[in-house]
Design a protein around this nucleic acid. Structure first.
Lengths: 231, 231
DNA sequence: GCAACGAATATGTCTATACATAACGGAATA
DNA sequence: TATTCCGTTATGTATAGACATATTCGTTGC
C-alpha cells in the first residue's frame, strides 16, 4: 500500500498537471486537507513540502499554498560517458590513445586548469564497432587527481576512469557545432566541411578543476538525446 | 538560524562529498545521530530521507544507511525558450513569422503528431538585437492546444506562449549538427556550409503530443550551456 | 486620513510515542 | 542437515501536541 503522504502528494500533483489547478490557484489549507483525508497535519506537511522543494507550489505563511508558474529552465540531459553509451546500445567499444604527455602547465588553458602544477595532456579516439565516433582532447589536473598518473589510458578511456574514480561536484558542458577540418577530420574519416557536434566539458571537485575535455563527434553519426519528465 | 534537520543533512552530505565517507560506508544509525545531535528520531529521519531520495545514500532496514556510488547519468541542461535566453542576457528579442497555415494533418510527421486532426504549421525567425539567431519550423497539435488558434504569433514566439500556456509533462530534445543550406542559410544570413546547431524538440502533455519543433542555430553565434552540481 | 500595534492565521520545525515492515540471525524442529 | 519460525533491529509511517515565525487584517491612537 502506498503511504498516505504520497497519495496526497500524487493527488495534488495530478490536479496541477491536469490543469484542474492552474498557476496562481490556492490549494487547500493544511487543516482542510487534514479533514479531507482524515490525517494529521504532519502527514499533510510531508506531502506538501516536496512539492514546494520541486518548485511546483509556493507556500506563504498566513496566505496559504499556491500553484507556481511552470519552470522555464532545466531539463535533464543524459550525458553518460561515451563508453557507457556505446556499450549500452550493444556496440563494441574501444579507445585509442593518440598522444600522451605529462608536463607543467604552460599554456593559458593549462594554467587555468591546474595553476602552475602538473597536467596530463592527451588526445584519443572513441570507436563504436571499429568506426571512429569521437575525437577527444583532454587535460587532467594531476594535483586534483594524482592517481591518474598511474593509469594506463591506452586500455581504457580517461573519461570512463575519471567518472568512477573521482567524486566530482560540478560539471559544465558547452555544446556547439563546427565543421571538420585538418587532423580531426582525418581521424574521424570525414571530409573537410562535414558538420560536427562539439562538447566542451569542464569538471570540478569542490573548488578544484579536475579535467577539461573537448569531444568532437561525427555530426552525421551522433546526436545528443535529452529527455525530461514533468516540470 | 538553519533548521536542525538541514544542518544534519548538510553535515552528512558534506562528509560524503569531501570523501570522508566513501561509497559503501555505513553512516551512523538514526539512534546514534539522535544522541550525537541531541534531537529526536523524526528530525534525523527528516534529514536522511531527502538524501535517500536524491540518490546519495541507500537505506536498508535492519542493516542501516550506506553511501551510494555516484550516479553516472543525467546532468541538468538549461534549455529555456529562446526569448527568455536572449532577454536574460540583455539583448533585444523579436520573432518574425515567415509562414503560417492551419490544415488537417497530412504528412507522416503531422499524422504522428496529431493523428488525423488539425495542426498549425509555421516557420519563423528568432532575432537577437536585430541579428537572426535561429530558424524555427514548428507544428502545433490543435487537438491538444485548441487555444493556439486564437493567438497572434506574429507578435510573440509560439514557443514562449506554449511554455506558459500549456502544462507539458514530457519533453525530448535531440541535439545534432548540420550545415547551413538553402532557405535556412539565407534566412540566417550564413554561407552555405556554415556549421549549425540543430535542436529537435518534441513535447507531450500526458499521452498527447503537443508540439514538435526544429530550431536551427547559427553555430558560430550560439552554444548550449549545461551546468550540473554534485552527483 | 494614517501610522503603529496587536490579534489571528497558516506554515515551519521539533518532540515523544506508537505501530508497521523488512531483513537478518539463531533456535527449535523435522 | 535442512527448514521453519520467531525475536531483534533499523528503518518507514503516522499521530498529537507544542512552540516559532511570517504575514495579513483590523483596530486603536494620533
Amino acid at each position: 500500500m502506498k503511504p498516505l503522504h504520497q497519495k496526497i502528494r500524487d493527488d495534488i500533483e495530478g490536479q496541477i498537471r491536469s490543469g484542474a489547478l492552474k498557476p496562481g490557484d490556492r490549494i487547500p489549507f493544511e487543516h482542510e486537507l487534514m479533514a479531507h483525508y482524515g490525517v494529521s497535519r504532519m502527514t499533510v506537511n510531508k506531502a506538501l513540502t516536496p512539492l514546494d522543494e520541486a518548485g511546483l507550489i509556493e507556500r506563504r505563511k498566513r496566505a496559504g499554498s499556491f500553484v507556481r508558474l511552470p519552470r522555464l529552465d532545466s531539463t535533464v540531459l543524459d550525458i553518460p560517458d561515451i563508453q557507457h553509451e556505446i556499450t549500452a546500445r550493444g556496440e563494441a567499444y574501444h579507445f585509442e590513445l593518440l598522444s600522451y604527455t605529462i608536463r607543467t602547465a604552460s599554456t593559458d588553458e593549462e594554467r587555468e586548469l591546474a595553476g602552475s602544477g602538473q597536467v596530463i595532456s592527451l588526445t584519443g579516439l572513441h570507436f563504436a564497432s571499429a568506426k571512429p565516433l569521437a575525437f577527444e582532447r583532454r587535460l587532467i589536473n594531476l594535483e586534483a587527481v594524482p592517481d591518474a598518473e598511474t593509469i594506463d589510458f591506452t586500455r581504457q578511456s580517461p573519461g570512463h576512469w575519471l567518472l568512477g574514480a573521482v567524486p566530482w561536484t560540478h560539471v559544465e558542458n558547452q555544446i556547439s557545432a563546427a565543421v571538420a577540418e585538418g587532423q580531426i577530420a582525418r581521424h574521424l574519416r570525414l571530409d573537410a566541411g562535414a558538420p560536427c557536434l562539439v562538447v566542451d566539458r569542464r569538471t570540478w571537485r569542490d573548488k578544484a578543476r579536475v579535467t577539461t575535455v573537448r569531444q568532437v563527434f561525427d555530426g552525421a553519426a551522433y546526436r545528443l538525446i535529452a529527455r525530461f519528465d514533468h516540470g
